[in-house]
């Protein structure tokens, strides 16, 4: 299993008229071929910006300040715009969170899809149309041969997202970045799409990054998980580690705020209190400390390093430090990872 992606100390900021928004503050992770990596986290925690930084699509006033993104041996942060255009859409495909603004409304689905296919393959126009219809069928658009002539606004939110997925998959990418790919879909279609992504992975060994806030989706498809908060990585591990041995108060908070389907009583949900930090003025210490039920003095002063719990599992929480008080549910003494 070869390493396909390595992100080192990535820092991305937006320099707005009101000041610097530190959207991603030093992320490091790597992916092997065939991995399905889930990125979960609070709204505004920098998940989309991480994804956009990987394919170097950060627009003004944003900037990748530091770090590298090694894909297939190349540092994407160092490539020219034309080299990047070559890679985007063919080797790395992206499905955006927002299907309406990423589908140009003046073109038909046919125009939009065949343009991408023609740009990245050597198919003829006719083959490209046939391929586009096949892809639409694959993602469950009924009567693809007629509906391919429709405009994006004539489709519902969910159907537009399926068009996005069909387009992204049409050039057989090595890495697929899916930003909230099923958020707008209902569950029966979501179940199909998740199956589709798993099938794609099995058949082509495509690596996939899925950004989602749905822990159910993560549980179903991911092999590995990164939990982000306030522009930083809080915890990283295999799917079983994050679900059965979570070692970060934020991860635990996420688990607790999921509604349980039980009949009869209507329990109040337990949200994590407070709101996410203003990334213009991020807290000095751990970004989660203002909302953390276990916050200590050091948490307010200094962000925790990544403590190592296993070869695959790390957590940025001071509770894991050997001198920290013992708190139930948190494993201490993990070696510091640097």
């Amino acid at each position: 299993m070869g390493k396909i992606l390595e992100v080192n100390n990535l820092k991305t900021s937006f320099f707005t008229h009101l000041g610097e928004v530190q959207a991603v503050r030093g992320s490091s992770f790597s992916m092997n071929e065939g991995d399905i990596l889930g990125i979960v986290g609070e709204s505004g925690s920098g998940k989309s910006v991480t994804a956009m930084s990987i394919i170097n699509l950060i627009e003004d006033p944003g900037k990748i300040k530091e770090g590298s993104v090694i894909f297939n041996g190349k540092d994407l942060t160092k490539l020219t715009e034309s080299e990047l255009t070559e890679i985007r859409g063919s080797e790395i495909a992206m499905i955006f969170q927002d299907p309406m603004t990423s589908l140009n409304p003046v073109f038909t689905i046919k125009n939009l899809m065949t343009e991408v296919i023609l740009r990245h393959t050597d198919m003829s126009k006719k083959e490209a149309i046939a391929h586009a219809i096949k892809m639409l069928d694959l993602v469950g658009i009924p009567h693809p041969e007629t509906r391919i002539n429709a405009y994006p606004h004539q489709f519902s939110g969910g159907m537009r997202q399926r068009v996005m997925i069909a387009t992204a998959l049409s050039c057989d990418p090595k890495l697929l970045i899916a930003d909230e790919p099923t958020t707008a879909l209902d569950v029966t279609i979501q179940a199909q799409i998740l199956e589709l992504l798993l099938k794609l992975k099995d058949e082509t060994n495509t690596s996939i990054i899925i950004i989602t806030h749905d822990l159910g989706v993560i549980a179903e498809v991911c092999t590995d998980i990164i939990v982000m908060y306030g522009g930083m990585m809080m915890e990283k591990g295999t799917v079983d580690e994050i679900f059965y041995e979570p070692n970060h108060p934020y991860t635990n908070g996420l688990h607790n705020s999921v509604p349980h389907i039980v009949s009869g009583k209507r329990d109040r949900l337990i949200p994590i209190k407070g709101s996410p930090p203003d990334l213009m003025k991020p807290p000095t210490g751990c970004p989660f400390s203002p909302r953390c039920p276990h916050a200590m003095q050091i948490c307010l002063e200094e962000a925790a390093p990544m403590f190592k719990l296993s070869d695959t599992h790390t957590s940025a929480c001071w509770l894991l430090h050997e001198d920290a008080p013992q708190v139930k549910g948190y494993t201490k003494g993990g070696k510091q990872d640097d």
């Binding site: 469950g140 009924p142 029966t188 179940a191 199909q192 179903e220 079983d240 059965y244 389907i261």
Partner: peptide
């Protein structure tokens, strides 16, 4: 089809995956 936030349960769960096309609304 509701995804359950529990990987082990999910792996063992039997789903009704709907077959067939959605009828066209046209």
């Amino acid at each position: 089809a509701i995804p359950v936030p529990d990987p082990k349960l999910t792996r063992s769960q039997k789903r009704i995956i709907l077959e067939g096309d959605v009828k066209s609304p046209i």
